[in-house]
Design a binder for these strands. Structure first.
Lengths: 189, 189, 189, 189
DNA sequence: CTATAAGCGAGACGGTACGTCTGGTCTTGTG
DNA sequence: CACAAGACCAGACGTACCGTCTCGCTTATAG
């Protein structure tokens, strides 16, 4: 995930990365970010502490990767998807318990630690933004692009992450309707 | 803040609570939630560790109280305020550096620890929600109340907390315009 | 036990001293000297911590008094007693569980703390020494007086305190025989 | 001193045990057993607290080892030594200020804590007993072996540890003479 | 076929902070 | 005044992790 994997020496264990990230997600759900320990991750994944440190330098790095790892496929939606599908992908991705804990942990740390902010911005926030932009492209709205990002991403975050509610079809349709007045079945005038 | 202050024994020091909460806010800004230590709070506020533990049982309790302590006046806007003023109060409240770190930390921990969830919900989230509700009441919108909460609170959270941007007048006006199509000078059709 | 009991104000509680010393002896047997806590003594005797501190300034003082309190009668053997009786009194005194713990604790602390040494010397060690001296006076021995003190007191200490054995009649008779060759029924030639 | 020194993992630091035991002895002399702190031992020996706890589980264990560490060479006297030499070795060993404080501390705790008693019995009392027995073997005495142990060890303890006197040649010769009436130059008839 | 290089588990190491407990002091009320 | 109650500063307790390090061993490629 990190090093360019030089050719000399014994190669890294195959499933080790996955085992570690799985452990991270499980422990995140159980104990939260501040209760997550490298020691615990190593124990849970049956790996030596040094093996974890060899692959990730920081708890924050590790957590970001753990989230990205599950989100990546969902970010890679087909290019011609309908706005509903894109939004549904985002909502579904963030609804996973592990993602929920991890995402909140990451943005919370990012507000305070520039390193985490940097990494989170490129690996988490930007892909989300692109998803929302592709959403907007298919929607007839008068709202400015930057504000639209705040409105759509914010509504999803508040609904799913902060309030912990399920992001069902009604929510998705309602949100799209709220930003696009002329949309069929929408709430606008 | 916590005990019913019985009459027996030596009474608690007068300014001690404030000294501790001040230290918490300062350290929150400097090191973030996970970097905040009770040991550090005690040292910074010139108080024995046991004195902190006597008054607050949990780091989360302490942090919630530290933030609520400064936010309360901001939440108490006059009852007949205009939506802009209410929204501005919310944005201002969340923009305080200490509040930003604390708010995110608290909702992040709340997702995992029911005790924190409980305390945060009543003391932090609910006041915010009431502010948003009073906002909605003064706005001519077609958006459903529950969704409107997600949209307004979410946009503010995303803009101010997640992206770390300043909540200036343009943002406030834009957001109100986005949810209220007929508003003068708004972005709607 | 300490203050000259002035006449002003509320008089000291009657049985309080005894309650405290009883608690000390009980706790000494249960937890030893280093495990003995003023906090624990106060709790056990149903007295406030400050009441204990008002009457004794030091844990060592308290312990010495607690032991002396029970030992005094045992040291007061009739002046014309036989050596056996005197030795038996000494052995009996040191065999009390509380005395055993306290005696060792006190001589151990005395080796390091001059204040303890002072108090222990006058109240505990000296009475023991006088008992041994009266013993020696009644024994027909060729051993020098000073060495005799080491031999008799040492043997008792080693047997009773260090090894924790009961000081029965056989031991008493054996010891007297060992230092007095011509004694009837003694072990010497 | 404790673990069977498995071969896995990073090996333990070479001089660390000695540095710790040295610190223990120094602090025992300065502050006594009850004033001895693991925290202080770690600081004094320039070692982390966890390193001390990794090697000894208990303050008592630590102190026992600190004493045994200085006594061991003296227990290993040549098998054909004269009684005087054996006794002199014992007296010299116990006369070191550190040994004095430590020995008293150990027997004092042993009277109260079975774990300490156990450890002290095997590592301290038994070797001492063997030393005294080898002493007895070279001495013509009529005193029973068990009582002889009490007399010789007791006299040494009382003279050196309790009274804090120097164990000079006169004391050694006098003690051997006291238990062996026919000895050349002895005090017996 | 031997170097050389890296991965890996294990665990020691110097640290920091934890949350608890006790010490000894002090400051209130009540008796 | 004595006393109980209890706040207060100070600091040790024993534990848990931190991130680094040193081992012995394994597994690869490169010469």
């Amino acid at each position: 995930m990190t090093a360019p994997t030089s050719r000399r020496g014994r190669p890294r264990g195959a499933g080790t990365d996955q085992a570690i990230l799985d452990a991270v997600r499980a422990l995140l759900v159980e104990h939260g970010y501040s209760g997550l320990t490298i020691e615990g991750v190593a124990a849970r994944s049956g790996v030596a502490k040094s093996t974890v440190y060899r692959r990730w330098t920081t708890k924050a790095d590790l957590v970001v990767d753990a989230v990205v790892d599950t989100l990546t496929p969902l970010f890679a939606a087909p290019p011609d998807s309908a706005p509903e599908d894109l939004l549904r992908a985002l909502v579904t991705a963030l609804s996973q318990p592990a993602s929920r804990a991890a995402f909140l942990a990451v943005i919370s740390e990012a507000a305070v630690d520039p390193m985490v902010h940097e990494r989170a911005a490129t690996r988490l926030i930007e892909p989300s933004r692109r998803l929302v932009e592709r959403c907007s492209a298919g929607v007839d709205t008068a709202i400015d692009g930057d504000l639209l990002f705040d409105v759509i991403a914010g509504a999803v975050i508040h609904h799913v992450l902060v309030r912990g509610l399920a992001g069902d079809e009604a929510f998705i349709a309602g949100l799209l309707g709220a930003v696009s007045p002329h949309r069929v079945g929408a709430a606008g005038s």
